[in-house]
Structure formats: C-alpha cells, structure tokens
Amino acid sequence: MQLEIRPDPAEVGRARKWARSRLAGSGIEADEPLAETLILLVSELVTNAVVHTGRPAVLRLRLPGPAAPAAPSATVRVEVADTSARAPVPRCAGGDATGGRGLALVDCLADRWGWSPEGAGKSIWCELDRCSAPRQSATTAYGCGLSAYEDLAFEAV
C-alpha cells in the first residue's frame, strides 16, 4: 500500500494518520509499542523527504496480515521514495539544533534501514521485526546508549 506525498510539511501529519489507519487490518494494535515506533519512523522518513528534497514522494508500507503478526518472518517495512538522487549524508547537528537527527533516530529504532537508487531518485527504507524484543525509547537510546551518534545527524536529501 502506498500514499503519494506532496512537498508540503503538512503532509507529515497526513502520512502519520494514513499509516495509523492501516494498522487495524495488520494485527498491530494502535497502542502497542510497535505501532508507536512505526508511526515515528513514518514521520521521520516523510519529514526528510519533504524538507530536504522539496519534491513529491511516495510512502509505502508493508505490514503483516492479521493471521501473521506473531510469525518470526512478520516484518514491517516503511519506505519513502523521492525523485532526488542525492544519497543520505551524515551532518553534524549542534546540541541546540532543532533538526538533523532524523536518520539517527531511524537507526536507533529500526532493526534495519538503508537506501537504494530508484528510477531517477532514491528509496529510503527501514524495517521492524514484529517479534523483536521491545526496543528502548528513542530518547533513552539516543541520549544514553549510542555515543557514536552524539554529534552526528543524518540528512536524507
């Protein structure tokens, strides 16, 4: 399933709402940690596409079916494709910066993430394993457990 995203910051909220509405048929309850993490990942990837490319994008979700939520192979995939061919590049964000940590958060929260060329642009994706042990909160993970990311931020352009 996919949603077309206009290059407008208001689209981030629409993308979160759309993703939440898709959870019901997947066997993922809206109030469980996986759902909350999924919505945060959608928000971060769509924000990066909208803010850093200024071009339309496509949000894609791959959710498990209701019969498979506990299966070991049940993986949730969030993918945002845009028409900018520029690769995600690390950048430093100062302690007072209000942005620039999106992909660092994705790295903390997702089981896997990456990007690949797609047509004239690229696709940035992340995956969550349905049966993974609950991950620590982004605040805890970013602030305490991942010193390698303390002074780095990533920009998806």
Rank of each mutant, 00 (worst) to 15 (best):
M1T: 14
E11M: 15
L23I: 13
A24I: 07
G25V: 11
S26N: 01
G27S: 11
E29V: 14
A30V: 11
E32I: 08
P33L: 15
L34I: 08
L34G: 03
A35M: 02
T37C: 02
I39W: 03
V42M: 02
T47Y: 14
H52W: 05
T53F: 13
T53K: 08
T53M: 10
G54L: 10
R55M: 15
R55I: 08
P56L: 10
A57C: 13
A57G: 11
L59C: 13
R62F: 00
G65W: 02
A68L: 12
P69H: 02
S73K: 04
A74M: 03
T75K: 08
T75H: 10
R77E: 14
E79K: 08
E79A: 15
A81Q: 13
R86K: 02
V89H: 01
V89Q: 01
P90I: 15
C92I: 11
G94C: 05
G95R: 13
G95E: 04
V106R: 04
D107L: 09
D111Q: 04
G114P: 09
W115H: 15
W115Q: 09
G119A: 03
G121F: 13
S123C: 13
I124R: 11
L128F: 06
L128P: 00
S132Y: 04
P134I: 01
Q136N: 06
Q136F: 07
A141M: 14
Y142S: 08
S147L: 09
F154H: 01
E155N: 01
